[in-house]
């Protein structure tokens, strides 16, 4: 039941790699991601008295998501993600990469997703959180989680297919 000295620090420290992974995938930028993680850890410590026990991970992810949303609002006047369909590079790639899912395409496609869909997709597919946990973290109903997940997946899929076809046409 009780948290021994340093027990809380240990519980939080265990989550740092996963917080970093999510932040990096969400922001698409290493520095910005680690800024977000650092801010989240500091926020968590300053509110540790509000933590009510249980699994530390959803609590930390909730804090991170709220900070990310605030940060995104502050930077809303900055240029948004620009669709970046790299027409030239695929020609240089070895042929075997063209059959499997192309990771660079996936990364590009991910950046083009609306942020709300990207967050759901990453929490479910990458962080493997339950739909309920995802809904709680993002503060949205579970039905919204399902519809964003569905739209996000379909958008990634059609983007990847489009790129694949474009590439095959060029190879012909």
């Amino acid at each position: 039941m009780s948290q021994t000295t340093g027990g809380l620090a240990e519980l939080i420290a265990q989550q740092i790699p996963r917080l970093r992974r999510y932040a990096r995938a969400l922001t698409g930028d290493r520095e910005r991601a680690d800024d977000l993680v650092q801010d989240s850890l500091e926020r968590a410590w300053s509110r540790i008295h509000l933590w009510r026990g249980g699994d530390m991970r959803p609590w930390l992810f909730t804090i991170m998501h709220n900070l990310f949303a605030n940060h995104a609002r502050r930077h809303s006047r900055e240029p948004a993600w620009v669709p970046l369909i790299d027409e030239d590079t695929p020609m240089d790639r070895p042929a075997e990469h063209e059959t499997a899912l192309d990771l660079r395409d996936l990364q590009t496609a991910l950046k083009q997703l609306p942020e709300e869909q990207r967050a759901v997709l990453l929490l479910v597919c990458l962080e493997q959180l339950s739909y309920e946990e995802t809904a709680h973290i993002l503060g949205i109903p579970i039905g919204t989680v399902m519809s964003r997940l569905s739209r996000g997946r379909e958008q990634l899929r059609s983007f990847l297919q489009g790129n694949q076809e474009r590439r095959l046409r060029r190879v012909k």
């Binding site: 948290q3 021994t4 000295t5 340093g6 027990g7 809380l8 620090a9 410590w45 540790i48 008295h49």
Partner: peptide, 8 residues
């Protein structure tokens, strides 16, 4: 560390 200690 101190916050963790108070948490305990």
């Amino acid at each position: 560390l101190r916050v963790a200690a108070i948490g305990g």
